[in-house]
Design a protein around this nucleic acid. Sequence first.
DNA 1: TATCCTTACGGAATTCGTAAGCATG
DNA 2: CATGCTTACGAATTCCGTAAGGATA
Lengths: 308, 308
Amino acid sequence: MNFQQLRIVRETVLRGFNLTEVANALFTSQPGVSKHIKDLEDELGVELFVRRGKRLLGLTEPGKELLETVDRILRDAQNLRSIADQFASREQGSLTVATTHTQARYALPNVIKDFKSRYPQVHLALHQSSPREIAEMLVAGEADIGIATEGLTSVPELITVPCYSWHHAVIVPLGHPLAKLPELSLQAIAEYPIVTYHEGFTGRAHIDAAFADAGLNVDVVISAIDADVIKTYVDVGLGIGIVASMAFNPAKDTELVRLGADKLFPANTTLLAVRRGVYLRDYARHFIDAVAPGSDETLARESQATDA
Amino acid sequence: MNFQQLRIVRETVLRGFNLTEVANALFTSQPGVSKHIKDLEDELGVELFVRRGKRLLGLTEPGKELLETVDRILRDAQNLRSIADQFASREQGSLTVATTHTQARYALPNVIKDFKSRYPQVHLALHQSSPREIAEMLVAGEADIGIATEGLTSVPELITVPCYSWHHAVIVPLGHPLAKLPELSLQAIAEYPIVTYHEGFTGRAHIDAAFADAGLNVDVVISAIDADVIKTYVDVGLGIGIVASMAFNPAKDTELVRLGADKLFPANTTLLAVRRGVYLRDYARHFIDAVAPGSDETLARESQATDA
DNA sequence: TATCCTTACGGAATTCGTAAGCATG
DNA sequence: CATGCTTACGAATTCCGTAAGGATA
């Protein structure tokens, strides 16, 4: 048994059981891949893959069982390298953060600025993606840290910690009738066409839930991924906007008015996630601590459980 | 990085940093061991071992950090083999149970008899040891299952589940004055010299605690490892015995009388332990279920945490 | 001086890549 | 007949063991 064999097994599953692709992905020859699989199967005494003739179709039962452990071994091997790097050069390396528009644009700039000056040697990469893609990147090991409000808690491979809570706000053009009301209500909002986030983004589920609970039907005329798009369409008069309140900048959004809606929609909690069982370097922990203070012990405790 | 290098690192720590011994233990040459360590250190870019001149003295800080992960990788590699064996031949293999005299003699015979007839192909080995040795065997991977009343909960590498509860009983020779009392008391017992278990065995701590709580000093004239020795000395009149109540067999111990002492000494709970993170084969799970019914979900849940 | 580690080197074993052959859709 | 896997074989690499040399208690 050797690491190359295990890498090949993992890659074979990842690439849909096409050994030619596996060989390319691992920069080796296809016959070599074939032989490694055969050797490992011989050594373990069980077939890992279901075959029809010469084609591989999927994992056998033992293959499925074994895969989890294979994954963990390879992840741990990577952890060894990370730990060593950590000691070899504590302040050098790279950190990939995957996050959504909202966080990247409104919550993270300060953190990132501080981090850059504290760790000038660390190559920090910020990937803007959808919550689903963020989760996928974390699981695949393509990102170290994920930050989003949605879609992270349902993935068992991830550990999440809360960063901060925030509310939605309603934004309307200057002089809009809603701005003149003594107190905003869901009923009043529901009278107007609404411009807000797409499903699965930035607390949209909470918005829908609030209206549904109140028995109101709303007309969402535009569902966007980010607040900049929303603000643009509110500005041109397509409807009123519901955005994360930190997306409104009084100094810049001079054509719009923000109306607080803390009591109308439930609070949202932005989460930070890392993959279970991956080693976090010092600077990654510091980044996390800057975004989600006091989460260290949670991560230390839970990351023990390295299984998916 | 390869498995042999990791094995060598682990063995080096285990053998007290003597590479010659390591080479012997792994059936290879000492220069090969030396080179493997050097190669791994070069690849990782950190020194794993503290050296004075050419001698190895211990682990460096990075070495300590890395060791945990190295251990887990090697344990997982072993798990791969176990899982494969499991599928290759579900009802064949071996199972090593480490336990104390009391359990081996009085609690386990029926379980073992059933197991043997259910899994004739499994080579079952029973190791009688002290609680401390049982824990060591489990941690070192020399035993699959440990069963004892003491000394298992304090080892973080082990997961324990309760098997059953029992009480101590007092045993006296036929016609002994204690047997004539309407009700037994600690005060009455303390009048006589006592023959019981050694410290760290079979609930001795509970016995001491009961007397201490009652403010009584007792004269333990013999402290033995097992009840057979205790019964022998009670029989020859050296004192009265305090043993696990299941160690008294009315049919065979005809020269002795058992006096219930359920209310005098706190109950004892015999525990079953396995090492965290090791894969348990079907028949091992069945054995555990026979000894500690309903413990399956505890094991399944906790064995996720593979770290020490 | 005995123990223990490192370096050096030749041979064995493993791994790898190319080429050719066969099965599948 | 194009894609995909296996077998075969020579080359390259890695791994291992012996021998020799240097350091430490």
